[in-house]
């Protein structure tokens, strides 16, 4: 998994922004992560904190807002939520990308792949 490289990129961006803002401290980081990135959010949070150690952001609280997945249908243009079905045999959830209106599989993911740094809270 690439949680570590994602976390490293996030931290680089946070520190660059902190420097632009002449921040003495970064106390909060708000991230928006799509559920279809298949990232493990706890791992991302852990590694962001780990990489922030020894920097102006070392005490920052990491807040992650999960974004649900959506697909847009190429046939009927409807936008559907990505349904998540629990599969007891696989012991985890399987996303279904089918169009809720016409049942087509010919859809594309229009939401749920976000990896965005929304805001940082700083002290000057």
């Amino acid at each position: 998994m690439h949680e570590i490289s994602v976390a490293q990129t996030i931290v680089n961006e946070i520190l660059a922004e902190a420097e632009r803002q002449s921040a003495a401290k970064v106390t909060r980081v708000v991230l928006e992560l799509g559920k279809l990135t298949m990232l493990n959010f706890d791992q991302v949070s852990f590694w962001v904190s780990a990489f922030l150690e020894g920097t102006v952001g070392e005490d920052a609280e990491i807040s992650i807002t999960p974004v649900d997945g959506s697909v847009e249908c190429r046939e009927c243009k409807a936008i559907s939520d990505v349904l998540v079905e629990d599969d007891p045999t696989l012991h985890y959830s399987v996303p279904q990308f089918t169009c809720e209106r016409c049942g087509s599989h010919n859809t594309f993911i229009c939401k749920g792949r976000e990896m965005v740094i929304k805001t940082i809270r700083i002290e000057r």
Partner: peptide, 15 residues
């Protein structure tokens, strides 16, 4: 007293 502010970043790390 520290001056605390929330800064909008809005950076998509995949950009």
């Amino acid at each position: 007293m520290h001056k605390v502010s929330d800064v909008k970043v809005e950076q998509d790390i995949m950009r």
